[in-house]
């Protein structure tokens, strides 16, 4: 029981920080809702940990509900890291496009200047 209260207090702190960040406009509305739902689900999981224990047992997993939540969290983290890796690769690709455009624009500008100079002469 004490552990559950402790975990809920920590989640409340995170939610308070989340509202603070939203008020300071450090995060956008979509991010705010994502994390709010995430922490609320976490709080619900802690409140109903006994029921989750029973559900996990019913599903045939050995170990307690808290273990199951831990495994689930690791899986979600893996997925998020994977998504992050993909978005980084896309960002990288956009960066290349910009570098390429700058390189080509510069040389084209130089070409135009040379052509103009030759015409003037």
């Amino acid at each position: 029981m004490l552990q559950q209260i402790f975990a809920l207090v920590i989640i409340a702190l995170f939610i308070w920080r989340l509202f603070e960040q939203k008020n300071k406009k450090k995060i956008n509305l979509n991010e705010f809702y994502f994390w709010l739902i995430f922490w609320c689900l976490g709080a619900l999981a802690i409140v109903f940990i006994r029921q989750i224990d029973r559900l996990v047992e019913f599903l045939g997993f050995s170990g307690s509900g808290i273990n199951f939540l831990l495994y689930l969290t690791v899986m979600i983290l893996f997925y998020l890291v994977f998504k992050l890796r993909l978005s980084l690769a896309k960002l990288d690709s956009n960066l290349t496009e910009i570098a390429r455009k700058i390189a080509l624009d510069k040389v084209n500008k130089l070409d135009d200047e040379n052509t103009k100079e030759n015409k003037d002469q």
Binding site: L95, A99, R100, I102, A103, L104
Partner: peptide
């Protein structure tokens, strides 16, 4: 003729440029 990438992007990127 020299084309300059403002940041290092790798050989594949340079070839496509």
């Amino acid at each position: 003729t020299v084309l300059k990438h403002p940041i290092n992007r790798g050989q594949g990127a340079a070839l496509q440029t």
